[in-house]
């Protein structure tokens, strides 16, 4: 494959426009207490413009089919991620986040991570997100709460996020297939030799994923071979989190009981709980 030289003169204005459109779009879309529909439409349009600019700065993949699939799943992931953080209602935010997880799982599948794509759906959308929804249904008042209709410093936060995104995109665009002096992995060293022999504009006809063959079995072998100690540590971490969660719950209930029995106000109850 060929390393496309990054041209800052060609992509720079496009990238700057994308960053500016992202700032304006997020600033208009984030909850600001006013709930004006026209501003949100304008924000959505600007967000779509920013997305189009980011797509235009993206690199062409090899085949049209792969490109279309990657575009669709990444658009689903990104658009629903944006909808997650700008939704007024936290329940809608959680459901948008589930859709974003589906898009992320699709991106992972395109990248050849079969196990992780399915694990993202099962662990995140199946377990973690349902737990979030449980808490929301327990704790959410009917209607929109006032604190869901405002946000802290929407303009500065949108500026920070968009500038971070611009800097990251710039450095991603400057990546090249050249050999890095810091780490000469064997796969890189062989690839460098091949890269110089490739014609300058040849499309990537067949990109073979070396991890695709017998994927899950080899991933399990890697996990339980080289990273066995880390797996044990992760198991201990899960156990500690489980015990910690139960301990906090029971302690909190004891504090509530103490508050209820002493009936001298919350401060006295908190002292009694200690």
């Amino acid at each position: 494959m060929t390393p496309l030289p990054f041209d800052p003169l060609a992509s720079g204005p496009l990238l700057a426009g994308a960053v500016l459109a992202t700032v304006a779009s997020l600033w208009l879309l984030l909850p600001n207490g006013r709930d004006t529909t026209s501003a949100r439409w304008l924000g959505a349009l600007l967000g779509l413009a920013a997305l189009a600019a980011f797509i235009a700065t993206g690199r062409r993949l090899g085949g049209l089919g792969e490109e279309a699939v990657f575009l669709i799943v990444s658009l689903v992931a990104v658009i629903s991620a944006a909808a997650t953080i700008v939704s007024r209602s936290p329940v809608y935010a959680a459901i948008w986040f589930a859709l974003s997880l589906a898009g992320v799982a699709g991106v992972l599948l395109v990248l050849g991570a079969q196990f992780l794509g399915v694990a993202t759906i099962v662990v995140y959308a199946g377990a973690i997100l349902v737990m979030f929804l449980f808490v929301l249904m327990l704790a959410q008042p009917a209607g929109l709460a006032p604190y869901d209709r405002v946000s802290n410093e929407p303009f500065l936060s949108a500026l920070a996020g968009a500038v971070l995104l611009g800097v990251l995109s710039l450095s991603i665009g400057r990546l090249s297939a050249g050999p890095a002096s810091c780490c000469d992995l064997p796969t890189r060293a062989t690839a460098t030799v091949d890269t110089t022999a490739a014609p300058a504009t040849a499309p990537v006809a067949t990109v073979v994923d070396p991890l695709a063959e017998n994927h899950v079995a080899r991933l399990g072998g890697e996990l339980f071979g080289r990273h066995l100690v880390a797996v044990e540590a992760a198991g201990v971490l899960l156990l500690v989190a489980l015990i910690g969660a139960i301990a906090v719950v029971s302690r909190g209930e004891a504090a509530h009981a103490a508050e209820a029995t002493t009936a001298k106000g919350p401060a006295a109850g908190r002292i009694a709980a200690r």
Partner: peptide
């Protein structure tokens, strides 16, 4: 031709990760 590494796929996926 190198059939193992795909720099455009890497860059696009990194962009998606950066946006998220």
């Amino acid at each position: 031709m190198n059939t193992m590494q795909s720099l455009p796929l890497l860059q696009n996926a990194l962009t998606v990760g950066a946006i998220l």
